[in-house]
Amino acid sequence: MATVRFRVNGKARSVDADPSTPLLWVLRDHLQLTGTKYGCGIAQCGACTVHLNGGAVPSCQVRLEDLSGADVVTIEGLSKQGDHFLQKLWVELNVPQCGYCQAGMLMAAADLLKKNARPSDADIDGALSNICRCGTYPRVRMAIHRAVAEQS
């Protein structure tokens, strides 16, 4: 066991657990932040995507021992009131179906737009490799296009 201090959604947190525990399970089981989802555990599906020090990563691949001093943002911290422009568009365009993948999808999309305000379709394809079993991809793409149009 090891105590590791880092920040989650702007708050200082301290977690005492096995150093190998993936950030995914630290968030879900130790910090009760269940918006970040377990889908595959091997960085294939993207359901567990969070922002680590400003960039999108699969949280299943980050170990607790590597988090010391890190800054983590989860879906719960993407905006204060759930009013990030992507969250609003996701509701307006009825993007989610079952919704299980959508936290990861939103975190990946927010990261893309932060780094590239006018992504091409190829940029979107490259940045969003998240799996959605319900098949919401057309609406995800549409929402990102709308976001680009509205932000510019």
Partner: peptide, 16 residues
């Protein structure tokens, strides 16, 4: 209308 539970869902609050 969109699904009633979407506002919670996009905040990660939906309880699966």
């Amino acid at each position: 209308p969109g699904k009633l539970n979407l506002p919670e869902m996009v905040k990660g609050e939906t309880v699966y």
